[in-house]
């Protein structure tokens, strides 16, 4: 089966991959790169569980073909932790108990990271807007917003 050649930088590492034309970025991340932190929820852009960062912007990885992001820089939830330990966002999510079942958490973290990368001191409204494309069915939004605020204070501000 012939494939398309695609080059991606994922979490700082370069990959040369071959993908099918209908292969979504989500499929490539989970099936080829085995980075299963990124979750598949609704598959149609409603829930945000599959959110990753493509060239500094939050993107639903279920709604983009891998071929379309050829040459891009991608960050997944696995890219948050570094040698120096957990990312301030991860620490804040733990501290504020912003995780219940955890399924929405990777997507929430990615949307929050995209926000803090461009706006290190967001208002509460800006945080809510940044997270509006992510659903949490355990309904713990308040803790999640608190966590992003805390991370912003400790990391951005």
């Amino acid at each position: 089966m012939a494939k398309l050649d695609v080059e991606l930088k994922v979490n700082g590492e370069d990959y040369k991959l071959q993908v099918g034309s209908q292969e979504r970025l989500l499929d490539t991340i989970r099936e080829q790169l085995k980075l299963t932190g990124t979750k598949e929820g609704c598959s149609v852009g409603e829930c945000g569980a599959c959110t990753v960062i493509v060239d500094d912007q939050a993107v639903n990885s279920c709604m983009v073909l891998t071929a379309q992001v050829d040459g891009s820089k991608i960050i997944t939830v696995e890219g948050l932790e570094s040698k120096s330990g957990l990312h301030p966002l991860q620490k804040a999510f733990i501290e504020k108990q912003a995780v219940q079942c955890g399924f929405c958490t990777p997507g929430m973290l990615m949307s929050a990271l995209a926000l803090l990368n461009t706006n290190p001191e967001p208002s509460k409204e800006e945080i809510k807007t940044a997270l509006e494309g992510n659903l949490c069915r355990c309904t713990g939004y308040q803790q999640i917003i608190d966590a992003v605020e805390m991370a912003a204070e400790e990391w951005g501000g």
């Binding site: 945000g48 959110t51 639903n60 709604m63 949307s111 995209a114 807007t129 940044a130 509006e132 494309g133």
Partner: peptide, 9 residues
């Protein structure tokens, strides 16, 4: 439109 994820693409 939609959400940040949709507006970016």
């Amino acid at each position: 439109v939609g959400s940040p994820q949709i507006r970016s693409r």
